[in-house]
Design a protein around this nucleic acid. Structure first.
Length: 423
RNA sequence: AGAGAGGUGGCCGAGUGGUCGAAGGCGCACGCCUGGAAAGUGUGUAUUCCGUUAUCGCGGAAUCGAGGGUUCGAAUCCCUUCCUCUCUGCCA
């Protein structure tokens, strides 16, 4: 959510930013300003009315105390009108506030200046690539066939007990999952992130705080009976840990990491894109989240990118980093770097991590602020990224490290798995 | 799940209809005192919104878990809801 004061003062900048992401409803900005203007004038009227009633109430109180009941009764009759206008104004104000919030939540974040313009993923800018794409034989297998061949993952069993998109991991497949989670958490905590274990269900306020609600309601599994949502990412519970807080400058930065399963309905997905581990309803992910002072948030983003790079290098996977263009940027993000691992058998790139800065966009929703060194209250900048999402890491490992003898694991994982090869 | 008790400022805690945004204490900040510190002592110490202002500030409104109601007036009374604690039940 964009701060209203910023919106008032930098309207043109905001419109330019929205144009960069091809936001289809630029007229919402003017509508928002107009509604805000109305709200403020209504607020002044209401405050004035309440001020008068408060004054009268005080006088009545004093009169009653001094026994001048008759005078008090006269004043009492005067309050009726104030009261009814106050009520009307209050109702109008409430309606306007609802309208204002509804418009505000429809306007996405403004892209960072460095974000390239573009309409789709084809316009993303490759900023880095590493690792050589292995020259596999013609008969290189996609990960779902390898998973079946080595009995690592059973998609049919998952369908049987739950449904499509809920795989069952077995034997070395299950062990590999556990090893990766442990390895990622160790890497993250070694880099200064504090580990958290958080609930996998969150309430509506949390969904709103990080921006999943109200717009992406259909993407989350919902338990109406209890008013709870299954988390689509650990970003939601982790970031919301600091909802409604006023921090001190000395508290920052705050760096968190956490492993959780992630649940996504992925309505509307189909075809080869959802084959095997490519897209699931439940998957495991280790997330990193940071809270930063605004002047440090850009450097923090680069640190996060470097951190994930070091993981992919240890995993010996061919990858590239893309800077997302305006048209491909998520609703809440100001700047995003996507990591993609090359799927040798599928001959395409798979998104494996997404690292974003939200600047103050989430904090505005979360009501998360801090007092800077001058004692001035400011919005905290939030950032997050996957470090890392398991299914596509596994897809990448299986496909890129397949040999005639089996899947050779990178050295860094062996202490965690207890085996070097899957055969 | 049933019965009872309770949720007040950074923390503890008083306050059951009238200048209460809230006594008192602790903590914290600044000053005095001191060679320095402790002790002592003085002052200050919530957030949000609106208006005004170059700035400090000033004026108004709201907030005592949350939302509604009664009343001229609510931290205080009533209703709903969330959370915490105690007992009973159930259970990994």
């Amino acid at each position: 959510m964009l701060p209203l004061s910023y919106l008032r003062e930098h309207t043109e900048k905001i419109k330019e930013g929205l144009a960069k992401r091809n936001f289809p409803h630029p007229e919402l900005v003017d509508k928002l300003l107009e509604t805000d203007q109305k709200r403020r004038s209504l607020q002044s009227q209401l405050d004035e009315t309440l001020s008068k009633s408060n004054q009268l109430a005080k006088e009545i109180g004093i009169l009653f105390k001094s026994g001048q009941d008759e005078k008090a009764s006269v004043l009492k009759s005067k309050t009726a009108e104030l009261k009814s206008t106050g009520k009307v104004l209050q109702e109008q104000l409430q309606n306007l506030e609802v309208a204002l919030l509804s418009i505000r939540t429809q306007i996405p974040n403004i892209p960072d200046e460095s974000v390239p313009s573009g309409n789709s993923e084809n316009d993303n800018e490759e900023v880095f690539s590493a690792g050589s794409i292995p020259n596999l034989k013609e008969n290189a297998l996609p990960h779902w066939e390898l998973a079946a061949q080595y009995d690592l993952i059973d998609f049919d069993l998952g369908s049987k007990i739950t449904g499509a998109g809920f795989p069952v991991y077995k034997g070395k497949g299950a062990k590999l999952q556990r090893a990766l989670i442990q390895y990622f958490l160790d890497k993250n905590t070694a880099a200064g992130y504090t580990e958290f274990q958080v609930p996998h269900l969150v309430n509506e306020d949390s969904g709103f705080g990080t921006g999943q609600l109200p717009d992406k309601e259909g993407q989350m599994y919902h338990i109406p009976e209890d008013g709870l949502y299954l988390i689509p990412t650990a970003e939601v519970p982790l970031t919301n840990l600091l909802r409604n807080q006023l921090l001190e400058a000395k508290d920052l930065p705050i760096c968190m990491t956490g492993y959780t399963p992630c649940f996504r309905r992925e309505a509307g997905s189909y075809g080869a894109n959802v084959r095997g581990l490519n897209r699931l309803h439940q998957f495991d992910k280790v997330e990193i989240v940071r809270f930063e002072e605004p002047q440090n948030s850009r450097a923090a983003l680069d640190q996060m990118v470097d951190h994930v790079k070091s993981i992919l290098e240890e995993l010996e996977l061919p990858y590239r980093i893309l800077k997302l263009c305006g048209g491909d940027l998520g609703f809440t993000a100001a700047l995003t770097f996507d990591f993609e691992v090359y799927s040798t058998a599928q001959k395409r790139w798979l998104e494996i991590s997404s690292i974003s800065t939200f600047k103050s966009f989430q904090s505005e929703r979360l009501q998360l602020r801090y007092k800077d060194r001058n004692g001035k209250k400011q919005a905290v900048h939030t950032l997050n990224g996957s470090s890392l999402a398991l299914p596509r890491v596994i897809a990448g490992l299986l496909e890129n490290h397949q040999t005639p003898d089996g899947i050779k694991l990178p050295k860094v994982l062996v202490p965690y798995t207890g085996f070097e090869i899957i055969n």
